[in-house]
Simulated scan of single mutants.
Amino acid sequence: MPLLTEDAKGVYIIAVTPFTDDGAVDWNGVDRMVDFYEEKGVTGLTILGLLGEAPKLTSEESRSIAKRVIDRVAGRLPVVVGVTAPGLAPMRELAESVMDMGASGVMVAPPWTTKTDDQAYAFYASVGDALGKTPWVLQDYPLTTNVTIAPKVIERIVRDVPTCVMLKHEDWPGLSKIGALRASSDKGEVRRISILCGNGGLFLPEEMARGADGAMTGFCYPEMMVGVVENYAKGDVQRAHDIFDAYLPLARYEQQQGIGLASRKYVLAKRGVISSAALRKPGGALSNADIADVERLLARQTKRLQEIGA
Rank of each mutant, 00 (worst) to 15 (best):
F219G: 13
I274W: 02
R156G: 04
L196E: 00
E254A: 06
M101R: 12
Y221K: 05
A278P: 05
D31R: 08
D140I: 09
T17N: 04
P151H: 00
Q257F: 11
F19Q: 08
A54P: 02
V69K: 00
T217I: 11
L181D: 08
R304V: 08
T114E: 02
I157C: 03
T17Y: 09
L57W: 05
R63S: 10
G174H: 03
Y232F: 14
L51H: 14
L268V: 02
F123P: 00
N28I: 06
Q255K: 13
T144H: 14
S275I: 09
H241T: 12
V228Q: 04
Q301P: 07
S276K: 06
G44P: 06
R191V: 08
D118F: 04
V80H: 01
G44W: 03
M91P: 01
L94G: 02
T113W: 09
R239N: 05
V42G: 06
P173L: 07
T114N: 01
S126L: 11
S62I: 07
I308Q: 03
L88P: 08
T5R: 10
K40F: 11
R296F: 06
Q238N: 14
D242N: 15
S126Q: 15
V153F: 04
T134V: 14
L181Q: 10
P90Q: 06
M107H: 08
V73N: 02
E93Y: 05
T113K: 03
M107C: 08
D31Q: 07
P162E: 12
L298A: 03
V30W: 11
D171Y: 15
L88W: 07
S194W: 06
G179K: 15
V153I: 13
T84E: 01
I149P: 00
L261P: 09
T5V: 01
I243N: 04
R280V: 02
D290M: 05
M225Y: 12
Y253F: 13
R192N: 14
